[in-house]
Computed example of a mutant assay.
Amino acid sequence: MRDDHPSDDLTAVERRLHQWANALLADAPADGARAKLVEFLVFGAKQAWACVFGAAMLVLIMAARLWYPDDAALARNDFLVITAVAIQVTMIATKLETGRELIVIIMFHVVGTAMELFKTDVGSWEYPGEGALHLGAVPLYTGFMYAAVGSYLVRVYRLSDLRFDRYPPRWITSVLAVLIYANFFTHHYVYDLRWFLVAAVLALYAPTVMHFRVFRGVHRMPVLVAFVGVAFFIWVAENIGTASGAWLYPTQVDDWHLVSLNKMVSWFLLMIISVVMVTWVDKPRPPER
Rank of each mutant, 00 (worst) to 15 (best):
F79I: 04
V81F: 13
I82E: 09
T83C: 09
V85Q: 10
A86R: 07
I87T: 06
T90G: 09
T90M: 14
T90L: 14
I92R: 14
T94Y: 09
K95Q: 15
K95M: 12
T98Y: 03
G99M: 04
G99I: 02
R100K: 13
R100V: 12
E101A: 13
L102G: 13
I103M: 09
I103W: 07
I103T: 10
I105N: 15
I106W: 00
I106S: 04
M107T: 08
F108A: 05
F108C: 03
F108G: 02
H109K: 03
H109Y: 01
H109E: 05
G112S: 06
T113F: 07
T113L: 12
A114Q: 08
E116Q: 06
L117T: 11
F118M: 05
T120S: 04
V122P: 15
V122W: 00
E126I: 15
E126V: 13
E126G: 11
E126W: 15
Y127L: 06
P128W: 01
G129E: 01
G129P: 04
E130I: 13
E130R: 15
G131D: 03
A132H: 15
A132L: 15
H134N: 12
H134E: 09
L135A: 10
L135V: 13
V138H: 01
P139R: 00
T142Q: 13
F144Q: 08
M145Y: 11
Y146T: 04
A147C: 05
A148H: 02
G150H: 00
S151K: 02
Y152V: 04
Y152L: 06
L153A: 11
V156Q: 11
V156R: 07
Y157D: 15
Y157S: 14
L159A: 02
L162R: 13
F164V: 09
F164L: 06
R166Y: 10
Y167W: 10
P168T: 01
P168M: 02
P168F: 04
R170F: 06
R170L: 09
W171C: 02
I172A: 11
I172V: 13
T173S: 04
T173R: 08
S174H: 13
V175A: 11
L176I: 02
L176N: 01
V178H: 00
I180P: 01
I180W: 00
Y181S: 00
Y181M: 01
A182K: 02
A182N: 05
N183S: 01
H187A: 05
H188C: 06
Y189T: 11
Y189C: 10
Y189E: 05
Y189W: 03
Y191V: 15
D192F: 01
W195I: 10
F196M: 14
L197V: 01
